[in-house]
Simulated assay, not measured.
Amino acid sequence: MQFEYVLLALLAGRPLSGYDLRKWVETEGQFLRSRAHHSQIYRLLGRMVADGWVAFEVDPREGRPDAKVYRLTPVGREALMEWVRSPYQPPSRFQDADFMSRFAFAAALDREAAIRLTRTELDHRRAQIARNRPRDRTVRFEDPLPELDQALAREVYEELHRYGTSAVDAWVAWLEHMLQRLEQWQPEPQALPAGEESAS
């Protein structure tokens, strides 16, 4: 997952300071990316400014250091939408950070892109289950270390398999649920500006 796209997606909602972005990374963002250091955020913001993806205004703060408030530029908007709509290649591990971050932001930016993303992930996981569920899981040992408890090792492997099976099944069920929600979603009617009346 390229983290600059997550920052762009956050700025799609409203202008934010580097501090605001850092606080998001420390709270909600921790579930998308582990160990993101605040210095990385400021480095990425600097690069995004240089690339023309974001611009900033200085917000004077009385008694505190001034804050740079970042907003998307048209070039940044284009880069963000290109990421949202780009092809997705599912990795072997499900609930990958790339899928989660794309899904979290793509749905509100481009529902059709989110539907394609979800279908791709769902098809891949169903095929993965069909290939791997019936495989031979026999654990064999040959000249093992004397410390190795073979019966316990087999028990642990089997429990990990059971957990993995239930987790991926729950993931597939959630994907099916979200795909249905996305396909059936009806946008709310846009409110008329103050002073305008409906033609009906």
Rank of each mutant, 00 (worst) to 15 (best):
A12F: 05
G52Q: 06
E196L: 15
Q190D: 11
W24P: 00
T165H: 12
T73N: 04
R43K: 15
R125C: 05
F94A: 01
E4I: 09
A79Q: 13
L44K: 15
V58C: 06
L11F: 11
L148I: 13
P87E: 04
A170K: 08
G63E: 04
P90V: 10
S92F: 13
G76H: 02
P146I: 10
R111D: 02
S198V: 13
R35T: 09
M81W: 03
E176F: 07
R111K: 09
V84L: 12
A12M: 03
P15S: 12
D20K: 00
Q184W: 02
A55P: 05
L72N: 02
A130L: 13
H38S: 12
L179R: 07
Y163I: 00
Q150G: 05
L192M: 12
E57G: 09
L8R: 06
A97S: 15
I129V: 15
I129Q: 11
L109D: 04
R126T: 05
S17F: 06
R137L: 05
L8H: 09
A50G: 13
M178P: 01
Q30K: 15
G13N: 11
E82D: 14
P193N: 03
P187R: 00
H177E: 15
S34G: 14
V156D: 02
A97P: 05
V25C: 09
R133D: 14
M48F: 04
P15M: 07
A130N: 06
A151D: 14
F141I: 03
P134D: 03
Q190V: 15
A9M: 08
E196D: 11
Y88C: 02
E121F: 03
R35M: 09
R133M: 13
Q40K: 08
A9H: 09
R119Q: 13
R85Q: 15
Q186P: 01
E188K: 14
L109C: 10
I41R: 02
P74Q: 10
E197Y: 12
R125D: 06
V168N: 11
R22N: 10
N132T: 15
L10D: 02
R131P: 01
P193H: 06
L109W: 03
E121S: 01
D59C: 10
L182N: 01
E159C: 01
R47T: 12
V172Y: 00
Q40E: 08
E112N: 08
L109I: 06
A114V: 00
D96H: 12
Q184H: 07
A104R: 14
A9E: 00
A79T: 09
V6K: 05
E112Y: 04
A107G: 11
Q150N: 07
A9Y: 07
D59G: 02
E176V: 09
D143P: 00
R111P: 02
L179W: 06
T118W: 01
M1N: 08
F94R: 07
I115D: 01
T73E: 05
F105M: 10
R77S: 04
G18E: 01
M1G: 11
R133I: 11
P91Y: 01
A106E: 00
L72Y: 08
S17H: 10
Y19H: 12
Y5C: 07
Q190H: 11
V84F: 09
A194N: 07
P15W: 03
P187C: 00
F31P: 01
L148V: 13
E155S: 12
S166W: 00
L8E: 01
E159L: 13
